[in-house]
């Protein structure tokens, strides 16, 4: 077997090994071991402050933007530790995209929002190729039909749900392998939320999705795997239980998981 075959057979897109995250001297996340399976939707759930967003942000080194943040342990992507010395976080983020809690389109046209990623990544595309990429990305985000006649309009003129799908299209345009979503529906109405969830199922065919959500119903109906986090007595977040979503919600092994999903706290 060649290295390439090994890679092909690796079922995991991302794997955190004994990962801890610190903000200054405060340990926000403690010893997380978590393997994210390819082409699946993995939901990270837990009460506020349990470190689930911090874990998500360590998967594409967004925590580097916080000056005091520090990560220990490993996060493997294609067998390579993204925190190894010499790894450029810019390259990591080009392959592991992110969608944020609040829709944050650039104050540019819809077209330019989508074209931004390929442009900064130095893709040399002809006008026609770029048009096609923009269309493909907008179709991928189920937004094309709504905006195809107004690609030159400012992205901020769209509704909240459309803006969030524009942000997804923008992330798709650089053809990442993994898409991290940090509570992508928390600022949206129920109909927009449903659209994004349907979209996630579509995207699963070509992408691996990790989603942080506060909404338990969302985790149960829209994910394949669920990871439950909780903070311990020093307020450090820990992974309590991880498994197929059906099992976590119907037959949790840990008592604390059972208490949380049945709404007894959090």
């Amino acid at each position: 077997m060649t290295v390439h075959d090994l890679e092909q057979n690796n079922p995991n897109a991302l794997e955190a090994r004994n990962m801890s995250v610190y903000y200054g001297s405060f340990r926000a996340v403690k010893n997380v071991n978590l393997a994210i399976e390819k082409n699946r939707i993995t939901a990270l759930i837990g009460p506020s402050g349990c470190g689930k967003s911090t874990v998500l942000r360590s998967f594409n080194r967004m925590n580097d933007l916080v000056p005091s943040a520090r990560v220990e342990g490993e996060v493997l992507f294609h067998g390579e530790n993204i925190y190894a010395p010499g790894v450029d976080p810019v390259n990591v983020r080009r392959r592991i995209g992110m969608v944020f809690q609040k829709p944050n389109p650039f104050p540019k046209s819809i077209y330019e929002n989508v074209a931004y990623g390929p442009r900064v990544n130095g893709w040399r595309l002809s006008k026609r190729e770029m048009d096609e990429l923009v269309e493909r990305s907008l179709r991928g985000a189920a937004l094309w039909d709504e905006v195809k006649d107004k690609l030159n309009q400012n992205g901020l003129s769209l509704s909240g749900g459309q803006q969030q799908r524009l942000c997804i299209a923008r992330a798709l345009a650089i053809e990442p392998e993994v898409i991290l979503m940090d509570e992508p529906c928390s600022a949206l109405d129920p109909i927009s939320t449903l659209k994004i969830e349907e979209l996630m199922f579509e995207l699963r065919r070509n992408y691996t999705i990790v989603i942080v959500t506060h909404n338990m119903q969302q985790a149960s109906r829209a994910s394949d795997y669920t990871a439950f986090f909780l903070m311990d007595s020093d307020r450090a977040g820990q992974l309590i239980e991880y498994g197929p979503t059906a099992q976590i919600f119907q037959n949790p092994k840990d008592e604390r998981t059972e208490q949380y999903i049945s709404g007894r706290f959090g």
Partner: peptide, 10 residues
């Protein structure tokens, strides 16, 4: 949030 979006796109 705009800076984060831009960083997130590499």
């Amino acid at each position: 949030s705009l800076r984060e979006a831009a960083y997130g796109l590499g």
